[in-house]
């Protein structure tokens, strides 16, 4: 068993070197054209697509967030509006109620006043009528009495009394 020394056994051959280089460059070009190029292109395209998709997703999410915020704000607004409307309605109702009550009170007192006045009027009317009638009656009675038994003395007495009454 004997081994040849490495460099003595294998003579340096430039033809082999050239052959390797040519084979390698042909292989390089062929692989680039048929396999590496298309696959690398596709990888780049996919990378681009992933980037685009991510960007799209981010912008979509932002949009959704804005929309949600808007909706929330609108909800809050409408709630506030509702409370406002409610409170306005309440105060309006209170005001109207008070007004109605006060108006009713005023009317009632006016009615009472009128009724009082009417009553007083009626009373005084009745009194006056009664007085007139009494006067008439008394005059009639007096005429009758006088016509029956009025003496001269009595007449004189009456006249005196009358004159006295005039003086008072």
């Amino acid at each position: 068993m004997e081994f040849q020394p490495v460099f003595a056994g294998a003579e340096i051959s430039i033809i082999n070197t050239l052959w390797y280089l040519i084979v390698f460059s042909i292989l390089l070009l062929a692989v680039k054209h048929y396999a590496w190029g298309p696959v690398k292109d596709m990888m780049e395209k996919r990378r681009q697509k992933v980037i685009d998709d991510l960007d799209q997703a981010a912008s979509d999410r932002k949009k959704a967030e804005i929309l949600a915020n808007e909706r929330e704000a609108a909800l809050k607004n409408s709630r506030q509006e509702a409370t406002q409307i409610l409170s306005v309605a309440k105060s309006n109702a209170q005001k109207t109620g008070k007004q109605i009550v006060s108006e009713a009170k005023a009317e009632a007192s006016a009615i009472r006043e009128r009724a009082k006045a009417d009553a007083a009027q009626a009373k005084s009317d009745a009194l006056n009528e009664a007085r007139n009638e009494v006067a008439d009656l008394s005059v009639t009675i007096a005429e009758k009495v006088i016509a029956k038994n009025l003496s001269a003395a009595d007449q004189k007495d009456l006249v005196d009394q009358f004159i006295k009454g005039l003086n008072d």
Binding site: A10, E11, I12, S13, I14, I15, N16, W19, Y20
Partner: peptide, 8 residues
């Protein structure tokens, strides 16, 4: 020049 067919 040498040509080594094995390598080729």
């Amino acid at each position: 020049l040498n040509v080594d067919l094995v390598g080729i």
